[in-house]
Design a binder for these strands. Structure first.
Length: 111
DNA sequence: GGGGTGACCCAGT
DNA sequence: TACTGGGCCACCC
């Protein structure tokens, strides 16, 4: 398909995806990149991280963690506080992804 | 146009 | 379990 790819649109997609993460669930940068890659044909975990660093403040950024379940660098305390309040369990300093990982098409009765 | 950088990820040691 | 190296891709000098 032709290049109908619009950078601003990709940013919107990332933010809107993060907003859809339910309370008590988390998504990794790589998962978001992979999910959006199906529609945009582009994108990488690094790009998602970069976008979150710039525009993340407008969305539930604490629900986005690394693939290994580590919290956002520089905001670990804040992120942990919010996640615990939402019922997320911790194993040491990281989130057990196998238990809390979420996927857009899963658990959401699509509108 | 070229090179450094980053809220990443995976495999190998 | 923790660290390292290579790959990745868009952004910013």
């Amino acid at each position: 398909m032709p290049d109908a790819y619009d950078p601003a649109e990709y940013v919107e997609a990332v933010l809107s995806t993060v907003e859809r993460i339910p309370r008590g669930r988390v998504m990794s940068y790589g998962a978001i990149a992979e999910y959006l890659h199906d529609r945009f044909g582009r994108g990488s975990a690094r790009r998602v991280g970069s976008i979150m660093a710039t525009y993340g403040s407008a969305v539930p950024w604490h629900r986005v963690v690394s693939g290994a379940g580590r919290l956002v660098p520089g905001h670990e305390q804040e992120a942990r506080r919010r996640l615990v309040a939402e019922g997320v369990t911790f194993r040491g300093t990281h989130v057990p992804m196998v238990q809390h990982a979420w996927w857009p098409e899963d658990g959401e009765s699509r509108a």
